[in-house]
Nucleic acid binder design. Structure first.
Length: 728
DNA sequence: CACCATCGCCTTTTT
DNA sequence: GGCGATGGTG
């Protein structure tokens, strides 16, 4: 067999990792060092050189995008379809297992998946049922508590309240939420993982089956695994205790690849320590380091190295490149966020004018909300762009409405879907009737659907409401029966029409409704283009699971040459010749919420590192001195990350004033504030409130307002015009 | 019960 | 700026 296509493109370190003898392997791979290449070539190597069947290989990634890419690369490498390989995200693979073994996992057949919004809705319902005040028990926090415990593998019965009454309440809520999920036949993201773990832990035979089948488990982005994912992998590929070499032939061979400097998912329970844990659990593991970067110029790499060196908790490595020094990193200090967007637009047009492709360009930002200003600028300058993430297709309200009908058709017990559409379009089933239904369902421990049937039969509802409800139930039953024989997209189409949903949105006010109708039509074509996989599910069920697991990227148009816009998180694993890293301001990036804690700050720094190392040839950094966010203006300072980049690598771009040394902290334009003494951070005296410090400035001229933190009175918003502030 | 206007709240990142 | 809760009106 000719192995040269597998081995030739590799450098020495890569080749060593790819051809490592069977046994546990840990690859520490820096940004741009060919991590994905090593993973895919290892798989090809296993198949072609070691003679491993593709069926015996399980490859796990974190995003659907990465999974798709890996499958494509392997197919190209081997020249055959990689259908037999199990490649997917942790969630996707867990889902696949649970579909096959729903009985053993004690799940409902045809269980459905909650996305985080669905989960939050359900939590709100649980709170309501428990008659708890949402201001005291914030749904987000309850959600966090539940998910966090699931990510650590803890069920309510494992938790101790430590005689803390509010903790005790949270534990109760967790338990109540679990019951609600079971009643409704639904499963959230964290549950997929935990359930798949418990499935194996509690079914020795099943586990044995999969251990025999998947001798080769490859995990990408290992620094982003959480406790339960690690435990799951360890269960599948258990460490061989020293001295039991006799079993070596039957051993599993985990091959994990990661980079502690790119750990950016701590907020959802990821534990970068799993890299070290792996070395402790698999002491015989071979360690490979990939430190040669093939992506970026040395300027960019040095800057990124310099930045990340400010993190204390690192395994440590030194990325190097033999490539050219390249152009300096450019820093643009924008007047405000619109100026920032215009600057970027301008540079993009220059790039295009010189024959560059727009798809070579990425605009990266910390949070999705920042995309809007760029979109507006690109729109008016007619720069084609594509936004990744943000409001995704399957997360749109009208799509979720349609999916709720479909879910109800495939599972009557899905209360969340029931509530969502029982009165949409309005059919005379109001809050009162619903209250009665909920009470009945709670009393009987049944689903809303069952309670509805019972209430109609017992005459517990008014005759009008009972009639409407009956009509609704008949509609669902009719749809279920009449569409059962249709192909998927006709099924979806029928549901949209017969339910009245399409008509409802058609009648909605002008443009808003129009977009929604278009989206609903898009849903039909999505269904048309959908190929169900696996035989455990009906096409409809399969489609619904797909909708939850893969929220679907926004408007595609992949063939068009577009500027790529995305958050730093979704940029991981990608590379672009030209990168704009925007919004580098204290409070925005690093984000306000991480300023207080060191671990959070280090994660933000890694995020910045990830962003910088996406750039191949050119990197632009920018920040705005004034930014309007959530409707209010505030003044910002350059992010500390800018200052942490070694001097001499950055060149400041200043169309108005030439300043050589960048980023003096706390500097403001002299001409900006129009009222004397009204500057951020200035001390002022007020006739009534006493002395204070200016925290924020909003508006200008006669409408200018300032937020002042008074020593005695706390913070207040004042009209500059009337406040008569004395600068101190 | 439906519809509309208003107010007050929050606001990171993803499967 | 966007959402849900709330309250008033038809």
């Amino acid at each position: 067999m000719d192995l040269s296509p597998i081995l030739n493109p590799l450098n020495e370190a890569q080749r060593a990792a790819v051809t490592a003898p069977l046994g546990p392997v840990l690859v520490l791979a820096g940004a741009g060092s060919g991590k994905t290449r090593v993973l895919t070539h290892r798989i090809a190597w296993l198949i072609q050189a070691e003679g491993i069947s593709p069926q015996g290989i399980l490859a796990v990634t974190f995003t659907n995008k990465a999974a798709g890419e890996m499958r494509g690369r392997i197919e190209r490498l081997l020249g055959v379809p990689g259908g037999a390989l199990w490649i997917g995200t942790f969630h996707g693979i867990a889902h696949r297992l649970l579909r096959i073994h729903w009985r053993e996992a004690r799940l409902a057949q045809g269980f459905q998946i909650l996305d985080s919004e669905d989960q939050q809705r359900l939590i709100k319902k649980v709170l309501k049922a428990a008659e708890l005040d949402e201001s005291r028990w914030v749904p987000r926090e309850v959600q966090w508590f539940i998910n966090n415990n699931k990510d650590e593998g803890r069920r309510p019965e494992h938790l101790k309240d430590g005689s803390d009454p509010s903790r005790a309440q949270l534990i109760k809520l967790y338990a109540a939420y679990e019951q609600a999920c079971a009643r409704n036949g639904v499963v959230d993201f964290a549950e997929l993982l935990l359930r798949a773990f418990e499935l194996w832990r509690e079914n020795a035979q099943l586990l044995e089956h999969y251990r025999r089948r998947f001798r080769h488990v490859l995990v990408d982005e290992f620094q982003d695994t959480n406790s339960i994912q690690y435990a799951w992998m360890r269960l599948l590929a258990p460490p061989v205790p020293p001295g039991s070499e006799a079993d070596a032939a039957a051993a599993s061979h985990p091959f994990v690849v990661g980079d502690d400097d790119q750990a950016i998912y701590r907020f959802r329970g990821a534990r970068a320590e799993n890299l070290q844990q792996f070395r402790r659990d698999y002491p015989q593991a071979r360690l490979f380091r990939l430190e040669q970067n093939y992506r970026s110029t040395s300027n960019i790499l040095e800057a990124a190295n310099g930045l990340i060196a400010h993190n204390a908790s690192r395994l440590g490595k030194n990325l190097w490149t033999s490539g050219a020094r390249g152009e300096p990193i450019r820093l643009y200090t924008a007047f405000n966020e619109r100026d920032e967007a215009e600057f970027v637009t301008h540079r993009i047009r220059e790039h295009a004018a010189q024959g560059g492709l727009r798809r070579e360009i990425a605009v990266l930002y910390r949070s999705n909300a920042q995309s809007r200003v760029f979109e507006e600028a690109f729109l008016s300058a007619r720069v084609p762009y594509r936004v990744y993430g943000g409001l995704r297709f399957f997360e749109r309200a009208e799509i979720k409405d349609a999916l709720a009908y479909l879910r109800l058709i495939s599972n009557r017990r899905d209360d969340a879907s029931f509530e969502r559409v029982v009165n949409l379009p309005t059919r005379g089933i109001g809050a009162k009737s619903l209250d009665a239904l909920r009470a009945a369902a709670r009393g009987a421990g049944s689903s809303l659907w069952e309670a509805a049937g019972a209430c109609i039969a017992s005459g517990a509802l008014g005759s009008k409401a009972a009639g409407s409800l009956h009509a609704f139930m008949a509609l669902i039953e009719r749809l279920a029966a009449s569409t059962a024989t249709l192909v998927l997209h006709e099924q979806v189409d029928q549901v949209l029409k017969v339910s009245g949903l399409l008509e409802h949105y058609r009648r909605e006010k002008a443009d808003r409704g129009e977009v929604r109708v278009e989206n609903l039509e898009e849903l039909v074509s999505a269904a048309r283009g959908f190929t169900p996989e696996g035989s455990e599910l009906s096409p409809l069920e399969s489609f619904l699971a797909h909708a939850a697991l893969e929220a679907g990227e926004g408007q595609a148009e992949q063939w068009e040459d577009c500027v790529q816009m995305m958050t730093l998180h979704s940029a991981k694993g990608l590379e672009f010749p030209l990168v704009f890293l925007a919004g580098l301001e204290e409070g925005l990036f690093p984000h306000q919420r991480s300023l207080g804690d060191l671990d959070g700050l280090e994660e933000e720094r890694r995020l910045c590192y990830v962003g910088m190392t996406r750039a191949m040839r050119q990197l632009y950094l920018s920040y705005a001195e004034q930014r309007r966010l959530h409707g209010i203006d505030s003044y910002g300072q350059a992010s500390r990350f800018v200052r942490e980049i070694p001097e001499g690598l950055i060149e400041e771009v200043r169309p108005r004033v030439q300043v050589s040394r960048p980023v003096a902290v706390g500097r403001f334009r002299a001409e900006e504030p129009e009222v004397a003494g009204v500057r951020l951070g200035a001390r002022v005296r007020h006739g009534k409130f006493g002395d204070g410090v200016i925290l924020n400035v909003e508006g200008s001229g006669a409408h200018a307002r300032v937020q002042v933190n008074f020593e005695r009175q706390g913070t207040k918003w004042l009209m500059v015009q009337y406040a008569n502030l004395q600068p101190l």
